[in-house]
């Protein structure tokens, strides 16, 4: 019983981290129809920005609690600077082109950002440990956890509920849903598609950067952190269905729990557990758990 509880808690923490990133990925795909390989780079840049801003706050002798504000600020800064810049200058030129071509564009972007962040921040590691101790320790079952780990769950819940509410209960959200559903018809109804694209992309970048910024306190921020996160968040959106927000949540939970079950019970299968779930979903529901099968072109 205790083991089951541990598996669930560990799975939920991992799933929360994953969900924040995958939510941005699925949102960008839903609206812009771009499968964004550079999403991992935005995550990494978020972590770097968090390191810089937390460092700045610490130098100004702000109270440690402000470091949480710094994390949020980092994500907002990355989104506001990187989002519009890339959307306006680069992605805009490729709308309407083949979706696979757009994957390639983001792959090129991934390569470029990898070196650009190295040019800005160098290769030496950054640590953002100030926020990590803010929430103390929490004991759950026979183990105790760092409170911050559980705070990530709260952040993921806020993101998920916020996006759900925003999409389903606000006018702006309805407009975005209309564009997700069919952008041509939405445009003919007088919706400014360009603005929706810009907003959705920027918000997607924000979520990736938020994931990175909130992970920064528990890792060493250095080159290469962008790669690992791409593959797992791809697995999440494949399992959940591309472009589906509920799918991203369920996909993240499935991956999280599958992984923590493997670690606790059959550790040799940890890496493979994610691929195994993905393969199983692909065989039985290749379009993902929450995706309507696409109609063919007429």
């Amino acid at each position: 019983m205790d083991l089951a509880l541990t598996i669930l808690i560990d799975g939920a923490i991992y799933a929360s981290w994953l969900f924040i990133v995958a939510l941005g990925l699925t949102l960008i795909f839903g609206v812009l129809k771009i499968l964004n390989i550079a999403h991992g780079s935005f995550y990494a840049i978020g972590a770097y920005a968090a390191a810089s801003i937390v460092g700045l706050f610490a130098a100004e002798k702000f109270a440690p609690a402000f470091s949480l504000v710094a994390l949020l600020l980092a994500a907002v800064a990355v989104a506001v600077i990187v989002g519009p810049l890339l959307e306006r200058l680069l992605l805009r030129r490729f709308y309407g082109r083949d979706e696979v071509l757009l994957v390639l564009v983001t792959y090129a972007l991934f390569l470029i950002l990898e070196d650009v962040s190295k040019l800005i921040w160098g290769v030496n590691p950054y640590y953002v440990t100030e926020p990590y101790g803010l929430f103390g320790d929490v004991s759950l079952g026979s183990l105790f956890y760092v409170g911050y780990d559980l705070a990530i769950v709260a952040v993921a819940l806020i993101c998920g509920v916020g996006v759900w509410y925003g999409l389903n209960r606000t006018v702006l959200g309805k407009i975005v849903l209309a564009v997700i559903h069919n952008d041509e018809i939405a445009a003919s109804m007088g919706i400014n598609i360009g603005k929706v694209y810009l907003g959705a992309f920027t918000f997607g970048v924000f979520l990736a950067a938020l994931g990175g910024a909130f992970t920064a306190p528990m890792i060493s921020v250095q080159p290469g952190i962008s790669v690992g996160v791409i593959i797992v968040s791809f697995a999440v959106v494949i399992i959940g269905g591309l472009g589906s927000i509920g799918g991203a949540a369920i996909g993240a939970l499935i991956v999280g729990v599958a992984r923590s079950t493997a670690v606790h019970i059959w550790p040799a299968a940890e890496l493979f557990s994610i691929y195994l779930v993905m393969a199983a979903v692909l065989i039985f529901r290749p379009e993902g758990l929450f995706q309507r099968a696409v109609a063919r072109r007429i």
Binding site: L143, I225, G228, L271
Partner: peptide, 22 residues
């Protein structure tokens, strides 16, 4: 006892730490 093999570059070790602590 526990013989954990996390993926290269995983960055998230919460689950592994739980397993080791148990």
């Amino acid at each position: 006892e526990a013989d954990l093999l996390p993926a290269f570059g995983s960055g998230q070790y919460g689950t592994e730490v739980s397993a080791l602590m148990r």
